[in-house]
Nucleic acid binder design. Structure first.
Lengths: 198, 198
DNA sequence: GTCTATACACCGATAGAC
DNA sequence: GTCTATCGGTGTATAGAC
């Protein structure tokens, strides 16, 4: 079927665009990423981008949706008998490793402009709320098991983990060059859950 | 003396400009802050800004220098017999409270463009390195006392505290409206040092 | 659907009158 | 030193040929 083949090609192209967006978002952030940048990295004309995505905001939203879907997939693929706390730590570790490979952090807290437009994106909001619900469920489970501090509100724990997954400490430690990637990720996950105290 | 009075007026104007820059940096970040924004908030013409600061970058750098000086002042004013760990916690608490009052976070990690220009700013680099040295000294002291984890590299602890002072969790918790400012700050400081475990 | 060319708006910085 | 006016450059988005 020619149509199916064309469709495949079309989707492959869109995936390549999102790869470029993802890389550029991680490198420069939303505000400094230009449509020229994206077009150049994909190797197509700027005008052609708008045949796939209606605006710069929708482009970024699509990239973030794809990443959120990946995170949800990771959670569903985890063994059902795995402890909630280990699922949380594993997800954080996975997110940090992805960032080390050049992926954009989950929280687009770097750009107020992007945040506002994302709030209006139904697809993105649906995904992010689903992820939020999944993680919240895990936090509460771990609190009930007594392995996460019960005196802390669930949101405090949840946001703290989110924030750690976007923490600039990762880049600082990497550029220092003193530790390998696995060690760096370990330090971040460990200090997040165990704290800094001796 | 008229000259002295004029000079005072001049410096007061510059302080007002830096106040505006500080507020705008916290609200919109460097990339989205425009010189028109600054001029409008101060109540002067855009062109007049350039009689005080030569560029947008130098404007932001001046605001960040002032804030870093305030942090250094805070440290020198702390009681000499205060425990190192309490100085660290106190500084983090102070930074978070300042952010709640509308100040810009210490790490301008939001803008790659600003980061690059700051690296070339000698005044800023001198201040930030002095602050870094002070805090590093406190971390090592606390590690030697056994109240901070000795198995963690000093940089990991230092950057983790820095990152917490800029953590978007603060805004998320505030906008949730569930906790007052003191409670919010307490949660952030506590989870940073004690971790999330039960 | 891809390209080139361009419209339109915005921003950083400067010029020049007062 | 403050203002208004403007220049040069850049960025998003669109138009139109192929």
């Amino acid at each position: 079927m020619r149509i199916s083949f064309k469709k495949q090609q079309f989707e492959a192209r869109e995936d390549a665009i999102l790869d470029a967006v993802n890389s550029l978002l991680a490198k420069k952030g939303f505000d400094l990423m230009t449509m020229d940048d994206v077009a150049a990295e994909v190797g197509i004309a700027k005008g052609s981008l708008y045949k796939h995505f209606s605006s710069k905001e929708s482009l970024a939203a699509a990239a973030l949706c794809r990443m959120t879907r990946d995170t949800l997939d990771l959670l569903t693929e985890m063994a059902p008998d795995m402890a909630a706390i280990d699922k949380l730590k594993g997800t954080l570790r996975w997110a940090l490793q992805r960032r080390l490979k050049g992926a954009v952090p989950h929280l687009p807290s770097t750009s107020v402009a992007l945040q506002r437009s994302l709030m209006l994106n139904l697809t993105y909001m649906r995904l992010i709320m689903k992820l939020n619900a999944e993680l919240r469920r895990l936090v509460i489970a771990a609190q009930n098991e007594g392995v996460l501090d019960r005196t802390l509100p669930c949101e405090v724990i949840l946001y703290t983990i989110y924030a750690r997954s976007c923490d600039p400490t990762l880049e600082y430690l990497r550029t220092s060059g003193r530790y390998d990637d696995a060690q760096t990720v370990d330090y971040l996950v460990r200090t997040c859950f165990d704290g800094l105290n001796g």
